[in-house]
Design a protein around this nucleic acid. Sequence first.
DNA 1: ATATTAATGATAACGATTATCAATTGCGTA
DNA 2: TACGCAATTGATAATCGTTATCATTAATAT
Lengths: 142, 142
Amino acid sequence: MRHSKQRELVRKILKAAGTHPTAEQVYEEARKVMPEIGIATVYRNLKTLVELGEAGVVRTDDQADHFDGRTEKHAHLLCDSCGRIMDLELRRGGELERLRDDVQKAFGVEDAEVEVRTAVFHGRCPDCLRNGRTSGETFVTH
Amino acid sequence: MRHSKQRELVRKILKAAGTHPTAEQVYEEARKVMPEIGIATVYRNLKTLVELGEAGVVRTDDQADHFDGRTEKHAHLLCDSCGRIMDLELRRGGELERLRDDVQKAFGVEDAEVEVRTAVFHGRCPDCLRNGRTSGETFVTH
DNA sequence: ATATTAATGATAACGATTATCAATTGCGTA
DNA sequence: TACGCAATTGATAATCGTTATCATTAATAT
């Protein structure tokens, strides 16, 4: 794979972003620094980065894919109230081992092994929960 | 809301399907019984059913939305190897209570409450796991 | 039966993404 | 260092899933 300024820029923007921008948002950011960059190049490089494992994709309820520059394993929570995509970081030595077992036990697939690579939870983020913003019925209550 | 043959048919097809068909697939099924039905009507009614809470939507890695006629709470597992969407049923009196806690503990949001309504897990289904079909690195291993 | 108006079906429009293709550029080699 | 070639780019056409438009049809209240 040949080096290109454009791909480097897209990579940098994605890594620097604390959010989960769409291709369009990465494009807007990229033009500020490289006005001649084309949107096709942005799409192309985002796709490449995902294939290289240097970026992830999060699909939400809006039509556009959101990209994620964090390569460390983590999960996401999509907030039904504010639409925010929240990172759920993996903690070393945490309760992680139990999660997969619980998924199996909770959903009745104990008889067959299941591998869980990542997860997207749908619910409400701490902010919205605190502020009492509603989002329908609760799946897993406390 | 006024009754319509078309909406009834879409509802019936979705309920009867054991799978998670796309709008196109529901359309194909519907034409067999009602050849004059239009695809816009199918899209329209699928959307309506989702709004009525009579159907769910699952977004996978392919571009099209998949619809789900099951209204009971459940989660999904998207198999990275075969692309299958697997239902993860909720079991009464199971380990469900622990799941949310474990999500919080595993991902370090214990300090703030999080509400989890549903979840989409990405990984490998029992079939692919048994047959040794690969799907990249494992997130939660056993 | 009739009037009202929601729902339909055909199709145009739309938004996100991908394909095409000529021009450009990175980079190994002479 | 200059050359040559293939990867990459930017502009834009094409595609795909979905929604909007609108004249026609049909469900239901009177």
